Simulated scan of single mutants.
Amino acid sequence: MDSEKEKNSCQICGKTFSTAQIRDRHLRTHTGEKPYSCEICGKSFTTAQSKDTHMRAHTGEKPFSCQICEKSFTTSSSKSKHMRIHTGEKPYSCEICGKSFSRSHYKDSHMKTHTGEKPYSCQICSKSFTTAQNKDIHMRTHSGEKPYSCDICGNLFSQLGNKDINMRTHTGVKPYSCKICENTFSSSSHKERHMRTHTGEKPYSCLICEKSFTTSSEKNIHLRTHTGEKPYSCDICGKAFTRSSSRNKHAKTHEVPTSENNIPVVDNNIDISDNNIDNPEFEQVFIKEEDKTNISQVKTENAEMQVEEEDLVKKYWEEFTSDLP
């Protein structure tokens, strides 16, 4: 048997195989030979099986289905990887920190967080990334490209994963479960963030004061207390805020409450008497243009009344003074 394996060994790398057929297939990894071509797009492959799998991209055939959520896949290996979402299996572990992953390339990408390696750089802003895929996704922030669209609501997405998450808002599917409290989530990131409520983990630290946070967004908001940055501005008065939620809450102070007939309801604390109608606070409660027209009409009427009063006083004074000696 050993002599048979030696007979079927690769002359380039020395690796041995049980059959000559497997050896010949392996040799193509060295020679680059791809003898099997797609009749539709012309793409070439090293094995007939790889070509057959590729053909399903054209036919739409997905013969492998998940028994739990009925999602279908073009290959059995893709289905097996998907099943780990339901089982929670993570067979690939980081040798440094022990963190586990459901796929080997997830682990490989994670390892670069320890080494600091970011070999893929953006040609526009020079930002670096651990994987080519992350770089390609980032490039869409410059180009504005959103190649993935929802078949139901038509929303566009720059990442396929975001499109899948959006679909779950339509289907109600929540495939990620908390093992502690059994809450379910539409995305793995939401589940991981939730898990920190149980573990108390706060992996995001402020570089200035070292305060820790459960999410990166919370850390970024906190950083603005140091930098003074207020990126969210009110469209009406220009006041700036560190959080979008604070800006939205403030914006409601400009809203005008209306009655059932869409007539503005004036705040009783604002003096709207005739002699106070020029008060800017009064005009502010009338946001709509047609309401501003109403204000002008009121002001005009008041001005006309004032002229009439002045004419009466003048007439009375003239009559009074004419009787004086």
Rank of each mutant, 00 (worst) to 15 (best):
K62E: 15
K5E: 07
E61D: 14
C178Q: 12
I22D: 08
F64W: 07
N220I: 12
Q123G: 02
G172S: 12
D278I: 03
V256F: 00
H54Q: 06
T29Q: 11
Y148E: 07
K118H: 02
C209P: 03
C178E: 13
C97W: 05
F213D: 14
P175W: 07
G200V: 09
D274H: 13
E283M: 13
K315H: 07
H142C: 14
I137E: 05
Q284V: 00
C125F: 10
E319C: 08
R23E: 11
K299S: 01
S158F: 13
I263A: 09
S104Y: 13
S102Q: 02
S259L: 12
E39A: 11
N262F: 02
S246G: 04
K127E: 15
Q284D: 04
V265Y: 01
K249A: 13
S77Q: 11
P35V: 14
T46V: 06
F241V: 12
D291G: 00
I152W: 11
T53E: 15
P325D: 10
N268W: 02
H82M: 06
Q306Y: 08
S100Y: 00
G154K: 06
K90N: 08
A240H: 11
H170Y: 13
S245F: 10
S121V: 04
E281N: 11
E218I: 00
T131C: 07
R224M: 09
I221E: 08
H138P: 09
Q306L: 10
S78C: 01
K112P: 05
M305D: 14
K252P: 02
S18F: 05
N134K: 13
C209Y: 11
C122G: 05
G116N: 02
S187P: 12
V266R: 15
K99M: 09
I277E: 03
S259A: 06
E33L: 14
T131A: 04
I180T: 06
K315P: 00
R28E: 13
G238E: 10
T215K: 01
K135T: 03
E192L: 11
D151G: 10
Q159W: 00
T197E: 03
D164T: 07
K174L: 07
R84Q: 13
N276L: 01
S273D: 11
C237K: 12
P147I: 07
K174I: 03
M1L: 06
H190W: 04
F64M: 03
I12G: 07
